[in-house]
Structure formats: structure tokens, C-alpha cells
Design a protein around this nucleic acid. Sequence first.
DNA 1: GTTTTTGCAAAGTATTTGCAAATGG
DNA 2: CCATTTGCAAATACTTTGCAAAAAC
Lengths: 128, 128
Amino acid sequence: MLQRRNSKQRSVIRDYLWGRIDHPTAEKLYNEIRVEHPKMSLGTVYRNLMLLTDLGEIQAIDVGDGITHFDPNPAPHAHFYCTKCHQVHDIHIADYDRVKEMFASHDEGIIERCNVNMIGICKDCKSE
Amino acid sequence: MLQRRNSKQRSVIRDYLWGRIDHPTAEKLYNEIRVEHPKMSLGTVYRNLMLLTDLGEIQAIDVGDGITHFDPNPAPHAHFYCTKCHQVHDIHIADYDRVKEMFASHDEGIIERCNVNMIGICKDCKSE
DNA sequence: GTTTTTGCAAAGTATTTGCAAATGG
DNA sequence: CCATTTGCAAATACTTTGCAAAAAC
């Protein structure tokens, strides 16, 4: 594997994503980071998010809205995409691995990942 | 709802997608159609695939490869995306609705759709 | 006839990339 | 020092859109 250096930018990007549950896009992170770090470039944000994803440190979420969202939690879990507020929410269920098993038994391929996305109106938007 | 006219182009696009299990992209369909219908434009293919999707006649599949694939079967079912051959395959299981139920009980939102995508190496590529 | 749909080309949106300069170990 | 990483801007990839002409009913 390639050699890595701990750049300041990478650590800033990691810090800005760490602990969040709102699944920001690369551009959203960039705009937030830019306030404190005006020299940070969008390309660097993309490059590092992709790198951290490849390293398995974070995960990239594709819910079908055409924009990649990022999740600091690399553990497999489902997501909910609200078509009204365009936010991505986590859905944690105890036996997520069961889903993979349900489909693995019906397909002879090698399943590496299992992505589950619910699309609809989230509970916050519903009650408005 | 809007009034619809049955254009020749729409019917050609519908015919080219009908019965297929290979989940072509808009561009793939366009290239195939172009052989017989050189005047067909890519914009028309995109517009009609989107329209047919909105009408619920077909479905758009987003497996996370950045390109929308189309499926003539509008019934909810899971998909398998092969990272080697970049093909999308169907995975039909008897109780697909169970998946939605598993997550619905853990979220108070209104779930309109449930997308399940397995990512890995398909059985054809595995055996090579 | 009037409204929808088309072809074409241009624009839009998200992301990737080339390259010289800066940085990290 | 030398390989990695950056900022910047340009390029790319997929999709959408504006508009005048053509087609549908």
C-alpha cells in the first residue's frame, strides 16, 4: 500500500466530519471549513474524503440524489433520505447483517457491501 | 396531471427497454437506438426515461456508480452491482417487503421506497 | 390550431485531474 | 532531500434545459 503523510488538511477534514450525524456532502464540509481555513481547496476535500473512504475510516453514502454524502461511522447501517429536507438520517437496527444474509442466499456472487436506503419523508418533516 | 401524447420516440425507447434484464444506462440505450433511429437525440432518451419513471412504468436504479441504470420492471426488488464488470443484476427474493418492515419499525418517518443494493463480484466474474 | 414533444446545442452540477509549488518525515 | 500532498484551474462525466421547429390529437 501507498505511503501516507499526515497533512494538516487531512486532519482538519477528519475533525470536521468526526462525530457528525448529518451526513454532509463534500461541498458542505468545504464551505464550513473555509470559514476557518480560507486556503483549503475543494479538490483537497474531495481527495481526502475519498482517501479516508478507501482506508475504511469513514463511509460514502449514495442515496440516489446525485450527491455523495459522508458518514464518519464506517460500520454498516441503513440510511433514510428525506425527499423534503434532503437530509440523510441513520437507521440503526440490531441485526443489520440479517439483510445481507437474506439476499446472499439468493445470489451466487460475492457480496462485499450491502447498501440499504429508505426514501420518504422523515419524522421531522412529517410533523410539520 | 399533465396531458400526454404518444410520440414515436417514446414508444421506441419503451420498446428498446422492454423485457431487458441488463439495466442499461440512458447512454447505452441511446447508442443502441441510434443505429436504427439516427435522428433520436440523447436529450429525448433522458426526458422519456425520466417521464416513464415518474409514471411508474419503469424504475431508475442508482447503485452508486454515478450513472443511473433503468429497469423495465417497476416492481420493488433488490439489485446487485458488480464492481468488476459494472453490470447491474436483479436479486428477487420472495418477501422483499419484509426488508422495509424491518426498518420501518425503527424509524418514525414515512417510507415511500426501499432501495437495497448489494455490491461485490457477480457469479459470472467470480468464476473467471 | 394548439399544446406537447423533439433535435440540437449549450449549460449545469458534481467530481476528478494536471501541474508547479509547498509540505512532511 | 525526495515522495506526498496541496491550491488552483481546467477538464471530465453525466444529466438537464432553452428554444425554434416538428408532431400529435
